[in-house]
């Protein structure tokens, strides 16, 4: 039995308490490939690699069946709706 989009959403919701979560099933129905956007307070102070590791860890059990997991965004709420960036060089 494959992993469903709902499974992934459920696990990430309880593990990461996201303020925004978007899981897209990119497998064409077989449930083995997902794209994720996740926004959570738990990412605060964590580097990009650590944030990805947190998502991977939450889905560790499912990863055995998931063929591809693409984490498009894993950010904190403050980074999610940023005030338009003013880049100062």
């Amino acid at each position: 039995m494959g992993v469903s989009k709902e499974d992934v959403e459920g696990i990430l919701t309880s593990a990461m308490k996201p303020t925004h979560l978007q899981v897209v099933d990119t497998s064409g129905g077989c449930g083995a490939s997902f794209e994720i956007e996740i926004v959570s307070e738990q990412f605060e102070g964590k580097k990009l690699l650590e944030r990805h590791r947190m998502v991977n860890a939450a889905l560790a059990e499912q990863m055995k069946e998931i063929h591809a997991l693409s984490i498009k965004k894993a950010v904190t709420p403050s980074k999610w709706n940023p005030i338009p960036k003013v880049q100062e060089e």
Partner: peptide, 21 residues
């Protein structure tokens, strides 16, 4: 690397991450 997927990229011996990163 304690990382579940491939590709995996290392720069100067440091694990960087996968394709998303």
């Amino acid at each position: 690397s304690h990382w579940p997927t491939f590709p995996q990229i290392f720069i100067n011996g440091e694990f960087i991450g996968g394709s998303d990163i």
